[in-house]
């Protein structure tokens, strides 16, 4: 099954490359803005009524308490499970060294790190997580960013990154080895880890979502800038003196 899915993903990729004409003058390509704004309103409501109150519960503890340690351990467990997928993506981007490092990190943390709850690979072996995903793989293959999307529950993305997320589910080597319950546990761990992030970056998120005049456009701008920075796709410098 994975092989056929992978071919389908490649087909989708080819379609994406064909419509890769990107970025107008202001650097924002958002033809689906009306739909995206509706999703944004939904996500914001969800954050306000559910995620923020929950993460504040988790985050009060994040200041070093036992709860904070628990959230961190669950976060470690969740991100450990994502390492094989990252190794695959590093390989697909033609980078065997990070792929090897992520494989070792996974093996070390899964064994010495007690199934990934601890992070001895990062702390004692200088093997920190080197993040990547299939969205980045597509970028390295020259696929354009495509239109901006705000996805329900997930948040800001682009057509390229949304495609990447789907492909990541398919090419994850763990996916075929875990049963349904194990996958559910992994998913739960990643949700807890996200809640931990929401608590840690709470002030930044609050200032964008609840204190800006147009939270949709601030979110879009900040997310796109940061993502392009991660992928080495930043635009030109702003020179206000030359305007």
């Amino acid at each position: 099954m994975p092989a056929r899915n992978f071919l389908a993903a490649l087909g989708l990729t080819a379609t994406l490359s064909a419509c890769a004409a990107d970025r107008p003058g202001d650097g924002i390509n958002d033809p689906f803005e009306p739909m995206n704004r509706k999703v944004h309103a939904f996500n914001r409501g969800l954050d306000k009524n559910l995620v923020k109150p929950l993460s504040e519960g988790a985050g009060g503890a994040a200041e070093g308490g036992a709860g904070g340690k628990a959230v961190e351990a669950i976060g470690n467990f969740g991100s450990n499970l994502s390492l094989p997928g990252k190794a695959v993506n590093h390989l697909l981007q033609g980078r065997p060294l990070p792929a090897t490092r992520m494989t070792f990190r996974f093996l070390l943390n899964s064994s010495l790190g007690l199934a990934g709850f601890l992070d001895p690979a990062g702390k004692d072996f200088a093997l920190p997580e080197e993040d990547t995903d299939f969205g980045e793989t597509l970028a390295s293959w020259g696929v354009g960013e495509g239109p901006y999307l705000e996805l329900p529950l997930i948040g800001p993305s682009t057509l390229r990154d949304a495609t990447g997320r789907v492909v990541d589910l398919v090419i994850d080597p763990l996916n075929s080895r875990l049963n349904r319950d194990e996958r559910l546990i992994g998913f739960g761990a990643r949700v807890v880890s996200k809640a931990g992030d929401r608590a840690r970056f709470g002030d930044s998120v609050d200032s964008i979502l609840y204190e800006s005049a147009d939270s949709y456009s601030q979110t879009r701008l900040i997310w796109l800038q940061h993502r392009r920075y991660e992928l080495g796709e930043e635009g030109d410098y702003i020179d206000p003196y030359a305007e």
Partner: peptide, 8 residues
């Protein structure tokens, strides 16, 4: 980290 104060 790529996020530009002037643009924002």
């Amino acid at each position: 980290e790529g996020v530009n104060m002037l643009a924002s």
